Computed example of a mutant assay.
Amino acid sequence: MEEPVLTGIPLLLSNVGNVVTAAFGWVAKVGEAIVGNPVLLLFAVGVPLCGLGVGMFKRLLSTRG
């Protein structure tokens, strides 16, 4: 007996699930690369945190006066 052919919405949902699964795999690979390389970790974590601190300090100074 033949397998039923997926058509319409079930096929679309299956394809979307495959894309989401692949995207999570890509994010995991990028995360592993960032954690494994100290320079990338510095630019991915350290620089945004410094920018956040400078922005908060500027906002604190602007509310003072």
Rank of each mutant, 00 (worst) to 15 (best):
E32P: 00
R64E: 12
V45Q: 08
A23W: 05
A23R: 08
L60N: 06
L61G: 09
S62G: 09
K29N: 12
L41A: 13
G55D: 08
V30S: 03
V30L: 08
S14P: 02
P4A: 02
P4V: 00
E2D: 12
L6E: 00
K29H: 10
G36F: 05
R64C: 10
A22G: 10
L13R: 07
M1I: 00
E2K: 08
L60R: 04
L6V: 00
S14L: 12
N15I: 12
A28R: 12
V47F: 04
T21I: 03
N15V: 12
A33R: 06
V20T: 06
N18W: 13
G53W: 04
L40P: 06
M56C: 14
L42K: 10
I9Q: 06
V20A: 06
F57Q: 12
G65I: 07
L41C: 14
G36M: 02
K58F: 15
C50A: 15
V39H: 04
G51A: 15
I9W: 06
I9L: 11
G8D: 01
L40F: 09
V16S: 03
E32G: 10
L49T: 11
C50W: 15
V47Q: 03
G65D: 07
V35T: 08
N18M: 14
V45S: 06
V5L: 04
G17A: 03
G31K: 05
W26H: 13
V5G: 00
N15E: 14
G17Q: 03
R64K: 13
F24R: 12
G51L: 15
G25V: 03
V19S: 00
V45D: 03
E2N: 11
V19W: 03
G46P: 10
A44H: 07
S62D: 10
F57L: 15
V30P: 01
V30F: 07
V39S: 07
P10L: 02
L60F: 09
